[in-house]
Structure formats: C-alpha cells, structure tokens
Design a protein around this nucleic acid. Structure first.
Length: 621
DNA sequence: ATAGGGTTAG
C-alpha cells in the first residue's frame, strides 16, 4: 500500500494540501518505501483532529510495515488516534503491545478510557501503573485519573489520588487543582473544593468556573456573587462557562421533589447579574444565547427573550434544537409561534421529538387547540410528553371531555402516563367535579407510586375537595410522608370550602406546631374563616401577625377579606378607614361589599361615599 | 488537559 493511496482513499485530497507537501518532501529525502516516524506522527495528528479512523488504520499498518510501531512517540499517536475515533479497545491493543510503556503512553491510555466513560478501567490502569512500574505520576496522569474519579463518583479513589497529588507536589499545579475542585464539587464536598481553591497560587477562569458551578448549583448566591467579583478584581474575564454556571442554578429540576430546603438563588438577582455578564461576554456561544433566552422567557419577559433571539439571528448564529426549545417558551402570540415554527421547519429541527413536543405545547398553551391537535395527529411517533402536552392543553382550556378522552386513548395505545399526565387529568376532574373519574385516576397514581410527588398529592387533595369528598381529601393529606406549606394550605382551603371552620383552625395550628411558616394563601383562608364566624379580633390578629411576624405584605385580597369582616359585623368606620388607607389600590370589590353592608346596617352617608368611590374607579379605568 | 444551553406541570 502506498502512502498517497492511503491518503486519497480517505477522500481528503486537494490541490494545495500541507500533507501532500510533506509527503513529497519526505519522498525526496528518502528514496525507500519506508516512512519516517516524524511524517507518520504528523499525519496521525491530522487524523486525530479530524477523527479519520480509516486513514488512521492505514497509517497504523504503514507503521508496522516500516517497523516503527514500537516507537513511543508513534505508538502514543496511534493510541490517541484510536481513542479519538472512539475505539478504545484498539488503543489498548497498541498499549499492551509495548514492552515498557513510558509515562506518556500511560497517560494516553488512562485518558482514553476516561473519555470513553470506562472510568473504573482508567482507575485500575492507574493503580497498576503505580504497582508494577517504577513510574511516578505526572500532572497529565493525575488529571486523567481525577477526571475518571469525578465522573464516576469514586469518592475514596478520588481522595487517594488527591493524596498522591499532594505527595508529589503537583496538587496546586493549575490543571490538577482545577480538576480537583471540579471533582469535589461533583461529590458535593464544597468545603474540600474551597480548600483547594484557597491554596492554589495561580488561578484561571476554569478555577473560578469550577467553584462557581458548585456554589450556584447549591444555591449559595452570596458565594457566587463574591467569586464573580473576586475574579474580575484579579483581572480574570468571565467566559461562557461562568455565565452558564450562574444560569444552571435554576435548572436543578431533580431537586423539585427531593430537597425543599435548597435555598434558591433569588431570580431577580440572578436575572440582573446574568444579563450583565451576558452583555460583557466576548465570544458568546450558542449555549449562552440559548440560556439567556430561556432565562428571560421563564421569568415573564417574553419580549426580551424574543428580541434576544432576533439579535442572535442578526449575528449570523444558527439556532439549534435547544435554542428552539428555549425560544418557544417565549411565544404566546400566534403570529410569533408561526414564525418560529417556520424557522424550525427551515432548519430541519421539526423532526426532533422534543422540539415537536414544545410546538404542540406552545400552540396548546396559547389556546390554539386545533393547531396543536393537527400537529399531534400528524406525528409519526409520540412519547408520554407528546400525549401529556396535548392533554394539558385541553385541561387548561376547559376542554375536559377531550382531555379525558385523549387520556383514555393514551392508555389504550399502551403508553404509560407519568406524574405530569396524571396532574393534567386531575385538573380536568377538578374542572368537571368528576369524583368517580377522580377515583380512577387516583388509583392509577397510587399504582404508579406518583403519590410520592408532593405536587401530585397536593393536587389530589384539591381534586377530592373540589369533587365534594372532604374525607378523601383528608385521607390523601394524612397519607403523605411529607407536607409542604402548599399541602397544608390546600387542606386548610378544603376545610374552609366545606364550611368546616373549626377544623381549618385546627389544621392551621397543626401546621404551626410543625414549624412551617404560613404562606399568603393560608391567611386568605383564615381571614375568610373569621368572616364566616364573625371573629373580628381574630381577623385583626391574623392581619397583624401576617405582616409583623411572618413578613408577608397584605395584598388587596387580604384587605378585602378584613373589610368584608368589618362590614359584616357593622364596624363600618373601621372598614372605611382600612379601605381609604389602601394606597394606589383601587378596588371595586371592596367598595361594593362595603356598600352592601351600608344597606344592611342602614348608613346612607357612607353608602353615598362608597358609590362615589366606585364611580371614580370606573372613570379612571 | 477542565466545563455547557433543554420537552410535559407549577
């Protein structure tokens, strides 16, 4: 096999190619058939960069032919070539063929296994290197094996390798320190990560990013902020990764049901800081654009999200499937949805299931049920999310017959609903007050163990309550292993809805005993209980406690409850005072309710005042 | 040599 044949057979020939030039130079120097190690290494590197395994194999054969395959440099290139092309087994064959692999070969084979995801093999090789050879690990090997430990959660091995790093004095070498921080962050050992960070004499953007990622996914907004500041002070410019770490804090979806104590980074802070960082980002990656778009879309600033998307297009960046998923969240206007839909078709992303699901969702959530259904019907393959998106669109717009019809068709088709599907189906039961159907869906919930999702159980409480079965609502509540404040408030509202005022107060006390802080909804319930029972003092007490003990600012709705309570008990003066003390809050409901009480209690002057206020409100509207 | 943006509900 001739060299140039090997090359052209890989289909990479062109007129002025550095490779071809190198080959002709080489053949001018050496008249024989054999190739030098320098040339083979050079072309192997070419293969590594472009993942050309076919050409690589021929070069390997050529190396054997030229009897240079045992040269450590050539061997390490061949090894890395196979690894880059995803053939770790071939890499290992090359490695094991060597009689005395040097430190570079060890590091290459360990890295090859690490990158291939075969981390235990990588760690095992590292151990055999230490055992069988007189070799001491260098920084490259440490990085490779630490990476393996980090990605496979090998805690004890990772700590051992850390100890080796310290012994060899390589712990604080930039790249070793960086991967150590990354490893501890992945293990959730933020203290160890911070300790390495503090000892490192030289840090770069990666060092900071690693630690920022750790703190932001753990909700330590203050630490993130301080680190961002410190890095800028040290003249290290934040990059895409810094930005993404910051945004990632939001995405710890798996914490949804598990850890409720997780302190979230305040959205307002994150939004301000992230957008500031994004503005100053020099080479914005597609990922960063998408993350920023998603961030705006999810926090209500749809216009900003969309304008960012168009800015991105202006910069000649091509959106990919994830960008589309992000930007679709920012669409509610039909024309905009259609435009993005057109972009999606243009880019060929329509065949992507996730993107397609998002399209169904966005048409559905916008109320364009027929459009959504048409997409749904035209699909060649559907998954749970597809069905769920369509069902929740129906449930959301009160097309409950369609929602339930589709739900049962889904079951007929043998698609297993998940917890979200059940949530939407329960929503329709609530809308229809369909108790029997509710039982059937709840049976499915229990059978599938979805009741472990707090959200599902909370919805079930609400469903049974609204379907007029307080006892079932309570038994769901009672059976829950963990109650959130929403569980309590749902149960309390259930009692209030059924006129069980004493029970609702008992429930509130039970909640307080468990040390759970009430939320605004609970106070509305309690004020409404006071209204029904005519407990003015208690009502005052709640409004006071709400503001001064729990730091919840009373809303219009809270004040209205209390005004109604005053009105009902004939304390019209107090009602008027409270109503007039409401700054910039024009509320017809409260005035109307007070007007009504004026009639009951026969106060004509105040009635006139109420009437005027109502007309003023109308005029200003 | 390090690291990444995401679907259904709320």
């Amino acid at each position: 096999m001739s060299f140039s044949n090997a090359f052209t057979s890989a289909g990479r020939s062109s007129k002025r190619n550095p490779l071809l030039e190198a080959i002709s130079l080489e053949s001018a120097n050496q008249e024989g058939a054999s190739c030098s190690r320098r040339l083979i290494s050079y072309v192997l590197r070419w293969c590594i960069d472009r993942k050309l395994v076919a050409l690589g194999r021929q070069l390997h054969a050529l190396a054997v032919e030229s009897k240079i395959e045992c040269d450590v440099v050539v061997a390490s290139y061949i090894l890395r070539m196979y690894a880059a092309c995803g053939n770790v087994e071939d890499s290992y064959a090359v490695f094991s063929y060597m009689h005395e692999p040097d430190i570079y070969l060890w590091s290459a084979i360990i890295l090859a296994y690490t990158n291939a995801g075969q981390t235990s093999k990588a760690i095992q090789l590292y151990q055999s290197m230490l055992g069988a050879q007189k070799l001491r690990p260098d920084a490259h090997i440490l990085v490779a094996v630490l990476k393996a430990c980090a990605s496979s959660h090998a805690l004890s091995e990772g700590k051992l390798v850390h100890a080796h790093s310290t012994e060899s004095g390589l712990e604080l070498v930039l790249h070793v320190g960086n991967i150590l921080i990354d490893m501890y962050v992945r293990f959730g050992c933020l203290k160890d990560a911070q300790a390495v960070f503090d000892r490192m004499p030289r840090k770069d953007v990666v060092t900071y990013n690693a630690l920022i990622a750790g703190y932001s996914s753990d909700g330590h907004g203050d630490k993130v902020q301080a680190l961002c500041q410190k890095m800028q002070e040290e003249g290290i410019e934040p990059d895409n990764m810094t930005f993404l770490s910051l945004v990632r804090a939001r995405n710890s979806r798996d914490n949804n049901n598990l850890d409720l104590n997780l302190a979230p980074i305040p959205t307002s802070w994150k939004l301000v800081y992230a957008s500031e960082l994004f503005k100053n980002l020099r080479n914005r990656s597609l990922a960063s654009w998408s993350a920023m778009i998603a961030m705006y879309a999810e926090h209500g600033s749809q216009m900003k999200a969309l304008s960012l998307y168009f800015d991105m297009l202006q910069e000649d960046l091509n959106p990919d499937r994830i960008t589309f998923i992000c930007v679709l969240k920012a669409c509610s206007d039909l024309e905009v949805v259609k435009l993005i839909h057109y972009h999606i078709i243009e880019s060929g992303c329509e065949i992507d299931l996730q993107v397609y699901n998002c399209l169904i969702d966005v048409y559905g959530q916008g109320g364009f049920l027929a459009d959504a259904r048409m997409l749904f019907d035209n699909m060649h393959s559907r998954c749970v999310v597809t069905w769920t998106s369509m069902i929740s669109a129906y449930a959301c717009y009160g097309s409950d017959q369609h929602a339930i019809g589709l739900f049962s068709k889904m079951l007929e088709d043998g698609v297993k609903p998940n917890e979200v599907t059940c949530l939407s189906a329960m929503r329709s039961c609530i809308n229809m007050a369909a108790l029997i159907l509710g039982y059937a869906i709840y049976a499915l919930v229990i059978e599938s163990c979805f009741d472990s999702y707090v959200l599902v159980s909370n919805t079930a409480i609400d469903m049974f309550s609204k379907c007029n079965s307080l006892s079932d609502a309570y038994s769901v509540f009672q059976g829950m292993s963990k109650h959130t404040v929403v569980s309590w408030s749902t149960m309390i509202s259930a009692y209030v809805q059924h006129g069980e005022h004493e029970l609702s107060i008992g429930c509130l006390n039970g909640m307080l005993q468990e040390g759970i802080k009430p939320n605004p909804v609970i106070f509305i319930c309690m004020l409404s209980v006071c209204y029904h029972l005519g407990f003015v003092d208690q009502g005052n007490y709640y409004l006071n406690a709400m503001e001064n003990v729990y730091g919840i600012k009373p809303t219009l709705q809270h004040r209205n409850c209390l005004i109604e309570l005053y009105g009902r008990t004939g304390q019209l003066k107090e009602a008027t005072d409270l109503l007039q003390g409401m700054p910039n809050e024009l509320d017809i409901v409260a005035w109307m309710s007070l007007l009504n009480q004026c009639k009951v209690h026969g106060n004509a002057n105040l009635a006139k005042h109420c009437f005027d206020s109502i007309t003023n409100v109308n005029l200003e509207d």
